[in-house]
């Protein structure tokens, strides 16, 4: 399982690198779709069918939004040769990446080996959850019953985002 996931994530990294370096913005957006749909396969391999269903829908919607934005424009990334500002950001980025690598090396030692994770937190949820919540699907039970208030907050965030998008698109800019 470790190997299969690693191979798929390797393809995702290739897609991500192409998405970042493509000349045409449309191919960049489509390459981002490669990453999203590969994630669906990873979810299926990791035994998470609910996540796979949601990710397919969300990725399709994201792709549609991004393609709609890109098709409305000139689609080209204007190339300019690197200047001082570019070198400064590159060095800053390298520094951040080195710091993150250090913290990753520290924190990976506290993680369980893949596939051997102990369910110390989820034991309470799994034990008799079908009787407590009346839902055969444990993920649904957690989302809509044990953590129902979180889901309500999520719905509020969604409504706020939709209102924000409508407001931004309808504003008349100052001339």
């Amino acid at each position: 399982m470790d190997l299969a996931i690693s191979v798929i994530v390797g393809f995702m990294i290739l897609g991500a690198l192409y998405a970042i370096h493509a000349k045409d913005l449309l191919s960049s957006v489509i390459a981002c779709g490669i990453v999203g749909y590969s994630l669906v396969i990873c979810f299926l391999l990791l035994k998470a069918p609910d996540l796979a269903i949601v990710q397919i829908v969300v990725d399709t919607i994201t792709l549609i939004i991004m393609v709609a934005v890109v098709l409305d424009s000139s689609r080209e990334e204007s190339y300019s040769k690197p200047d001082t500002q570019g070198y400064i950001t590159a060095i800053t980025g390298l520094l951040i990446i080195v710091i993150l690598l250090y913290f990753f090396a520290v924190s990976i030692q506290t993680l369980d080996v893949l596939g051997k994770s102990s369910l110390r937190m989820a034991e309470y949820y799994i034990e008799g959850a079908a009787q407590k919540t009346g839902s055969a699907n444990l993920v649904t039970g957690v989302v809509f019953d044990f953590r129902g208030y979180d889901t309500m907050g999520e719905a509020v965030v969604l409504v706020t985002a939709v209102l924000g998008v409508l407001t931004i698109l309808r504003l008349k800019g100052k001339k």
Binding site: L51, V139, V142, D150, T151
Partner: peptide, 11 residues
């Protein structure tokens, strides 16, 4: 498999 991370990711 652990349902708790899956519920978090779903949100």
């Amino acid at each position: 498999v652990d349902p708790l991370p899956q519920a978090l990711v779903l949100t």
